[in-house]
Design a binder for these strands. Structure first.
Length: 260
DNA sequence: ATGGCACGTCAAACGTGA
């Protein structure tokens, strides 16, 4: 089963590029971030015509997450637990049952947090604390779990083309990196780093400053796997070339193959 | 050497992002 995540930066602006990629990459499950749409306006039919079931958790104008799946999506839940006053649509879960078992997939759009320090950074760190609690609860099930999406965290300096430019940014501040490591310390495996070592691997290039042409990228989209999912990991990759196409998102897809 | 962006909202700038 191939599971991908992709921050599309607006479904209305990206449906053509997204469908082109779906048609060629043919992932079984896709976790979408930044749909920037309310549920009613999400183009379900476009994906249903391609054999995908669709579940969304959107809001007006910003944020918003969705799951596409060629397998049925069961026990769907929307929103990250731990703060009933949080109105931002950044988390969705569902269970996908493949030919050889089930996996709980969580699609997430972690807050950016800039400017730091400030209330937006406080919200980011609090959100990561809530995610830590949710991840611990999911790990306690001892079932395969995948948490994938836009983490808005550059884990290490090797994950940025120009690390010094990010040292005071919410994506790379020590507290952000520590919170990301705290997730890993629960016993989660970061799929990409289980397969690939070294610098030069990115999932985001800013629209400004010719970042793509200069390969001035950062690696901020990630997939974390429970031990039961990590044991079934057979491959992981980044569809880098998508960034060079017509009307691209500023992110590219990240995917894993799980023997499920 | 330097400056160079793109969403959605709503109909002109503005908030937001990374």
């Amino acid at each position: 089963m191939r599971i991908a995540c992709f921050n599309i930066n607006g479904i209305k602006a990206r449906h053509a590029a997204l469908c082109d990629w779906l048609d060629e990459a043919s992932p079984d499950v896709v976790l979408l971030q930044e749909i920037k749409s309310i549920d009613e306006n999400f183009p379900h039919e476009m994906f249903e015509d391609r054999g995908y079931n669709v579940e969304t958790h959107g809001q007006k104008g910003f944020n918003g997450v969705a799951i596409l799946s060629k397998y049925p999506l069961e026990d769907v839940s929307r929103g990250l637990p731990g703060d009933d006053s949080d109105e931002q649509a950044r988390w969705i879960e569902a269970t996908v049952t493949g030919d050889a078992g089930a996996v709980r997939v969580c699609g997430l759009y972690l807050p950016n947090g800039n400017p730091a320090p400030g209330p937006k950074y406080d919200y980011k760190l609090a959100w990561m604390e809530r995610m830590h609690a949710r991840a611990a609860a999911l790990l306690a099930t001892e079932e395969p779990v995948l948490m994938g999406g836009d983490y808005n965290v550059i884990p290490q300096d090797e994950d940025a083309a120009r690390p010094e430019a990010w040292h005071k940014d919410a994506l790379a501040l020590p507290e952000s990196r520590a919170a990301f490591r705290r997730l890993l310390h629960l016993g989660l495996t970061e799929a990409f780093r289980a397969r690939v070592e070294g610098p030069g691997h990115y999932t985001f290039w800013d629209y400004q400053g010719g970042a793509w042409q200069r390969n001035n990228g950062i690696r901020i989209d990630h997939m974390l796997l429970s031990p039961q999912a990590a044991d079934r990991l057979t491959d992981c990759g980044i569809d880098t070339e998508v960034r060079g196409r017509e009307k691209p998102s500023d992110h590219v897809p990240l995917w894993v193959d799980l023997d499920i």
